[in-house]
Amino acid sequence: MTRTPRLFRLLPSPGITAAKVPEITVLFWVVKVLTTGMGEAASDYLGETNLILGGVVGVGGFVLALRLQLRAERYRAPVYWFCVSMIAVFGTILADVLHVASGLPLWATSALYALAVVVMFTWWRRSEGTLDVHSITTVRRERFYWATVLATFALGTAVGDLTGLAMHLGFLPSGLLFTAAIAVPLLAWRAGASPIATFWAAYVLTRPLGASFADWLGKEHSIGAGLGLGDGPVTLVAIVLIAVLVAVMVRRGDDVQRGVAPVADIPPPGAGSGPSTNRKRSEPGDATVERARHALSDASTSERHDDGVTR
């Protein structure tokens, strides 16, 4: 039996039948920025209201959302964006707790989370050979994806507070700074740079971008020159907008990756010669094709024999 070379095989784990992340569209980026702002505002609101409640919602929601996403067999917009939203809340809590509990300055926590992001990218790349989000068709790759996303959310929270508060830029100038920064990977992509590198550069920048504008809207003027609308109302409006846009995604269906077909896992040579459920099963037409091959072979042999007799 001819085996597919290992280099060219996708190896989806049991339970995964399609890509687990959405196609990258304009709407994807809009919702992504909204989730970052919502996570920032919701985390601050819960923390100011009740620390225990904040911990339960943040940690419990994160665990629940991640479990639902990992158990799904394919990409489902509501499940996926619920997971992103809860990671946004939990990532903010993670970054704030490290800063407050350790007493480390924001530049130090930003550096630590930047290192964590680099480590995750390196580990993922060395393990899977790619960071392409179109290849999230296995359990292991999906775990790498979500661990990296969590690290980027924590990094963005720390960097947004660093520019808005520690560097005294204020939240609005900080948001405008990151708006300009996110244009760089967009222009690089249009100029022919790696789509994978430019995607992740933009993805990392969406966190401080959305968080800066959320803080500008919600915080008092004495904190980063905010507008003082309140973290609660900002959270509620962001949740409504996210829900509406996700409903639009579901209705349109253009956020589903097309043409991603999983391939059955085939053990490498030498892994064993006994029966395996991973071996390729015979298709209904295989016997017909084999008979046709034999017929062609017999006809060719007969022709050569007749030709020899004539001579």
Rank of each mutant, 00 (worst) to 15 (best):
S212A: 11
V117Y: 07
T109I: 11
P5W: 02
T17V: 15
G47Q: 02
S43W: 04
A154G: 03
S13K: 04
A264Y: 09
H168F: 05
M249K: 09
R252G: 03
P12M: 10
L66Y: 05
S13R: 12
R125G: 06
G308N: 01
G192A: 11
A238C: 08
R258N: 08
I16Y: 12
L51Y: 15
I196P: 00
A154N: 03
F62K: 06
R67T: 15
G272R: 12
N50I: 02
E48F: 08
V248G: 00
A193M: 03
V260K: 07
F82P: 04
A77N: 10
R143K: 10
F62P: 04
L11H: 14
D255Y: 06
A111L: 14
R67E: 12
G230P: 02
N50P: 11
D298A: 15
L186E: 11
H221I: 01
R251A: 15
V30S: 07
E142W: 06
Y145C: 02
A154E: 02
F213C: 00
V234H: 00
V260T: 11
C83D: 14
A247R: 15
M167S: 08
A114R: 00
A247K: 15
F90A: 05
F171E: 03
L176D: 03
C83T: 15
E73P: 13
A264F: 09
V33R: 04
V159M: 06
S302W: 12
G47F: 01
R293T: 04
D215E: 07
L169A: 14
G15S: 10
R291F: 12
A41T: 03
R279N: 14
I266D: 13
H168A: 12
A202W: 07
S102K: 04
P12A: 09
L236M: 05
